Amino acid sequence: IARKYGICCEEREGKKVYLGSIPETIQIKDQERSIRKVFKVTERTISRDGQIFLIPEYEFETYWTDLEVPSHVVISLYHNHGTCEQFHSEIKSELDLERLPSGKYETNGLVLHFGVFAYNLLRLIGQESLKKQDTPLKKKTTRRSIRTVIQNMITLASKLVFRGRQWKLKVAETNKWLPVFTRLYQAFY
């Protein structure tokens, strides 16, 4: 079926990926609906390390949808749905917006607007911090969580000093996050 309804792409030697969709009509509460069964079939005959398999290894993914977009788009949308849930969870937990403070709709709307504004600023700082690999974290990541941004860059130990008719922010030279903080400050100043 994968060969009949899909297209084949050989990602590397010994790994073929078939992407495609099968049109189907289903019955829901006395109504007929047209859907697509989108599939991704991976056939492996050689492992990543170069080990040849005696019997090919198959992996199947199927998605039922009524979206009129290409198969690879449906698959990527499904794989990214968890990321949206993470963003929603961060707004609720990290910014403490799980329970809104008032019984009035307008007040809660204003609090939510400020919360989303703060969230977007923190996300912007986190994405900017990823542009160079100068952070003291051990793992290389593609996204900084809001908790990490708040802990490492917003609550940075410092003191505000007034000297020579100027206000200055003093950060210890031994702080591991100082190069990242300096780069971020210059990026947004």
Rank of each mutant, 00 (worst) to 15 (best):
C8T: 02
C9A: 09
G14F: 04
K16R: 11
V17K: 09
Y18W: 12
Y18C: 01
G20K: 01
P23G: 00
E24V: 07
I28V: 11
E32W: 14
E32G: 09
S34H: 14
I35A: 06
R36L: 11
R36G: 02
V38I: 06
K40T: 13
V41N: 11
T42W: 05
R44P: 04
I46Y: 12
I46M: 12
R48Q: 15
D49V: 14
G50R: 04
F53V: 11
L54G: 14
P56Y: 03
E57L: 14
Y58K: 04
F60I: 00
F60G: 01
E61C: 12
W64F: 04
V69R: 03
P70R: 05
H72L: 02
H72A: 02
H72Q: 13
V74M: 00
V74F: 02
Y78N: 07
H81M: 13
G82K: 05
T83R: 12
Q86I: 05
H88C: 01
H88N: 06
E90H: 05
I91A: 06
I91Y: 06
L95F: 01
G103V: 02
K104R: 14
Y105E: 14
E106P: 05
N108G: 01
G109E: 15
V111T: 03
F114A: 15
V116C: 03
L122T: 06
L124K: 05
L124T: 08
L130I: 10
K132Q: 04
Q133I: 07
T135F: 10
L137T: 05
L137M: 09
S145M: 07
S145V: 02
R147E: 12
Q151W: 09
N152M: 08
T155V: 13
A157S: 15
A157V: 09
K159L: 11
K159S: 00
F162Q: 08
G164F: 13
G164H: 03
R165G: 12
K168D: 03
L169D: 06
K170E: 14
A172Y: 11
A172H: 10
E173Q: 08
K176M: 09
W177R: 07
L178R: 08
P179G: 04
P179D: 06
T182V: 15
L184M: 01
Q186Y: 10
